[in-house]
């Protein structure tokens, strides 16, 4: 799909600029284009630094190709920019070093993150990649809340994680796939050990 034919997704229809504001264009890896206000971009340290370095004028923003964010798909990027537009102008929180972190999830964020786990993890991954501190903060809290009152076995199911034993088995399987001779050598070594040989060679 060419860039010209790519669907243009306006993140926030109500936020169409009345006064002259700069709207940057970004493109996801599945060629969806997004228009995001300058103020909303400030929530992402990565994007903010990028647009500052590029030094685009209002004409550049319209005429030049959209900035590609190649690691993130359109569905995830839409959520990211929706969040940025809603929280534009808000101060970026600073880590106070306390553990456990006390985080409250605002109503808007809770609704935005009412999605399946796969998409939620993509959103977290994107927030980390684009360095959006507060989005990362609330989305991590959402995942942390999943652990509430669950047993380790239940947590493994929620997070789709193998147990230590299964992990070991997977590791062995991977090693065997890499070097099938290794197991034979190990068995031969054990056999010789049983026979009382001092040295393998």
């Amino acid at each position: 799909m060419s860039v010209e034919n790519a669907p243009v997704v306006d993140v926030d229809e109500a936020a169409i600029p009345v006064e002259k504001k700069m709207y940057y264009r970004f493109e996801s890896n599945d060629k969806k284009e997004f228009r995001v206000s300058e103020l909303a971009i400030q929530q992402s340290e990565t994007l903010n630094r990028l647009v500052e370095a590029m030094g685009y004028t209002s004409e550049d923003v319209e005429n030049k190709p959209a900035i590609a964010i190649e690691n993130i798909d359109g569905k995830t990027l839409k959520l990211v920019f929706q969040w940025c537009e809603h929280h534009k102008g808000e101060a970026i929180p600073v880590d106070d070093g306390s553990v456990p972190k006390i985080v409250e999830i605002p109503e808007f964020d809770a609704k935005l993150m009412d999605i399946d786990n796969g998409l939620l993890f993509k959103l977290i991954w994107a927030a980390d990649y684009l360095n959006i501190v507060q989005l990362l903060n609330v989305s991590c809290k959402k995942v942390a809340n999943m652990a509430q009152g669950k047993t380790p076995a239940q947590l493994r199911r929620v997070y789709l994680l193998p147990s230590d034993e299964e992990d070991e088995a997977a590791k062995r399987a991977a090693q065997e796939a890499q070097d099938p001779r290794a197991r034979e050598v190990e068995e031969e070594f054990e056999e010789r050990k049983r026979q009382g040989g001092n040295s393998f060679f």
Binding site: T76, V103, G118, I124, W125, C140, V143, Q148, L161
Partner: peptide
Amino acid sequence: LTTQFSDLPDDVLKMIIERITL
């Protein structure tokens, strides 16, 4: 992109653990 919990980097997993209640 099939992102799962195990795909998340260590730094992010640490952030999640920090937000889990005592």
